[in-house]
Design a protein around this nucleic acid. Sequence first.
DNA 1: ATGAAAGCGCTAACAG
DNA 2: CTGTTAGCGCTTTCAT
Lengths: 334, 334
Amino acid sequence: MRDVAALAGVSIKTVSRVVNHQPGAGPDVVRRVREAAASLGYRPNLTASSLRRSDRRSATLGVVVENLSNPFDAALLRAVEERASRDGVLVLGASDEDDPRRQQELLDSLASRRVDGLVVMPVAGDQEALHVERQRGTPMVLVDRPATFAGADSVTVTNRRSSCEVVLELAARGHRDIAYLGDRETLWTSQERLAGFVEGMAKAGCRLREELVRTGLRGALPAERAALELLDLDRPPTAFYTAQNLVTVGALQALRGRGLQHRVAIVGFDDFPLADLLDPAVTVVRQDLATVGTTAADLVLRRVEGDATDPVHVVVPATLVRRGSGELPAPGRA
Amino acid sequence: MRDVAALAGVSIKTVSRVVNHQPGAGPDVVRRVREAAASLGYRPNLTASSLRRSDRRSATLGVVVENLSNPFDAALLRAVEERASRDGVLVLGASDEDDPRRQQELLDSLASRRVDGLVVMPVAGDQEALHVERQRGTPMVLVDRPATFAGADSVTVTNRRSSCEVVLELAARGHRDIAYLGDRETLWTSQERLAGFVEGMAKAGCRLREELVRTGLRGALPAERAALELLDLDRPPTAFYTAQNLVTVGALQALRGRGLQHRVAIVGFDDFPLADLLDPAVTVVRQDLATVGTTAADLVLRRVEGDATDPVHVVVPATLVRRGSGELPAPGRA
DNA sequence: ATGAAAGCGCTAACAG
DNA sequence: CTGTTAGCGCTTTCAT
């Protein structure tokens, strides 16, 4: 910048004004400065600028998720990025592998880069680290699971309500022996989905058979095994509600293995690519990650702008996508 | 940092030494400084540090892809992130939507934040903007398509060779009327895959029927239509090579629509989730994005460290994943 | 082993 | 309209 000023024959401050499109620079001077900048290949240094500026903004957000290659997390990152880019804000994306230590490292790393705000999908368990970071002043929005401390905004989806609706739909088609396959119950989303299932069964007047409820399924293989076991019962379920992506895949594999894919209904939570290419196409509850991400970005950017109103918990509706597998009627009820 | 120094009763420089684990600080002083830092909630400011430091590093890389929510791009970002995190380097991820203007904006934006290096999946067409940025000194690695200018490293996969192999495999199972469905030919990868297809047909001694080669297919729907047209020919193909993700999906839909999924062979380029859940499971050429990303990150980080050897073009092998759909024999050749 | 002074690239606050 | 001075938080260089 000094060099540009010298070449253009003006003061360094004038260059600053031109670069930042501030008023108070003659049109002729502007041109000379621009030329000088171009010929020297000058690039403004945003880090130096933000160091000195009074707002101290880095025009950068941090996004911490479990794994950026997870389509779920990627969609979220993308949505945040899209919203942020409208304000010229860039996004530092990072994966914590659901490891609290790693999450802490990333928080420190992002804080030392002075990100303006954080969008975090918190690791299961204690949120103390996030609380501490928030108290240091960093605007923060939690996604997927709500904050267990005061001060941060949260954006989640209708895990419970949508799960309840799924059960009611299945019951409306005559199903009464409905099985629940879910992930670890340490996850807030799993708890909510199970709660919604239980609620739905009650509302539908279905007896909840304990042996048809299986949780703690981590990945497709355990889910497949669990589904096979249920199918081998004397009185097997006529419908499955699979409350997580990979669990759904495992259950589908089980049904296919038994040749029951057209006889046993199944609804999954979380959409997945090609769900409509299977036979029958798979009915799912779809989370609107784009809305979740955009909302989260909106919130955090607003906080960055100084909005100090009370923290909010936004709940984005998930939608039931009927494709066929969830609309199979109970036997003898065609 | 000043406050920490005051509280600990030492000079600001001493605090700097402690924070950076530099020698020249008494064990007692170290403890006092650490305590003061903790009690004040001090966070080092990496941006201020990098501004003053002689290496001028920001410990940040920029990754520019088409769309971060694309599983392909997400896997790449994740791989770069993983490699970078081992050096304490964070990653700014950005989507250019295959728009040259947007790519330029992102380059400027990343440059103004003084990223140490760039990993770029270049937009189709002119690479002049990248060339300019590279000449300004930013280490840069192109992925997916090679650089058309001197100075940048590239990492691609064996588009051509793998395509050739696919054809030879199909031919070995008796197929001679093999169709090619591909994306736009303006894309380097598409060109390579088509070239490999042509090469394979020649090597296998198959006559290449022009009417069985369809390119410019953008997305699943056009691909499905094209596939249906080919299936309606007097002498339809007995095998498909679909050279892109969505094209494969479209062709699968066409085969399923005609009930031919067990009679006509199909091999796709690019793996996709649940490819093994379809019936028959889909044989694909899988790109090893993890290796591509890690390699790219490796290269760019090495350049950041000062490696000034000649630019390289690394070609990562893609692997044929045989799942069934590609192993269907030609009719009358069971 | 510790500290004082200078300055990275830039902008706030005040002159002219 | 334009320039001068000071200083953001930190590290360099050189002293002590």
